[in-house]
């Protein structure tokens, strides 16, 4: 997750203190990705090293104001103009689990799918409750940003359920039906529906 670019994008709107950056980052993502202040300062010092931000002088309370440089502004512009790489996303534990379930003897893939589907649906219900409790058309930009982040999580959960549905029907299609024990081995195959 690009905290680096998130902080740069906030600084592109004007100089800010470290604690301000933390608060604004969290409010615009609906506190989905809480930051600790240490992360903020370590990221800022790397940005300073790379000459993307400048640290000003300390005020009377010993706090530093950070501002963006011309290179920093160019970096933010480049970030918004560039798609996120697929490979930057973490490995999908669920895909790995299902792959293992299919190849491990004695594991009921349908059970694994259903257990996950119910859990994901519950998560989706929680997200939807948050959405239902808020205005359908928020006017505040912070609210709008939070809504987009929320919808991102909603769509991911939905995609997961659709993928699970797909896995289930795929496995039904490729798994040969259990034959009745009494059927002779050379019986002609019946046409399946």
């Amino acid at each position: 997750m690009s905290i680096r670019h998130g902080l740069l994008a906030l600084l592109a709107q004007g100089p800010r203190y470290g604690y301000q950056l933390r608060a604004e980052f969290e409010s615009s993502t609906g506190s989905t990705w809480p930051l600790n202040i240490g992360q903020v300062y370590s990221t800022l010092s790397r940005l300073e090293r790379d000459e993307l931000v400048l640290r000003g002088d300390a005020d009377e309370e010993g706090r530093f104001v950070y501002s963006i440089t011309a290179e920093g502004t160019a970096e933010v512009r480049h970030w918004f103009a560039t798609p996120v790489e697929r490979t930057d996303r973490p490995r999908d534990e669920l895909a790995i689990k299902l792959a293992m379930a299919v190849t491990t003897p004695g594991v009921d893939v349908a059970d694994v799918v259903q257990t996950q589907r119910t859990a994901t649906l519950r998560a989706l219900q929680d997200l939807t409750r948050l959405k239902a409790g808020a205005s359908a058309a928020p006017a505040d930009p912070g609210e709008q940003a939070w809504r987009l982040v929320l919808e991102s999580m909603v769509f991911h959960a939905e995609a997961e359920v659709r993928w699970l549905d797909h896995c289930e029907s795929f496995m039904v299609r490729v798994t040969p039906p259990a034959r009745p024990a009494a059927a002779p081995a050379d019986a002609p195959k019946e046409a399946r529906r």
Partner: peptide
């Protein structure tokens, strides 16, 4: 429904 995003508006979802 077959749509999870819509089902999630419900209090309870059964399969």
């Amino acid at each position: 429904t077959h749509d999870a995003r819509h089902a999630a508006w419900a209090d309870r979802v059964v399969f």
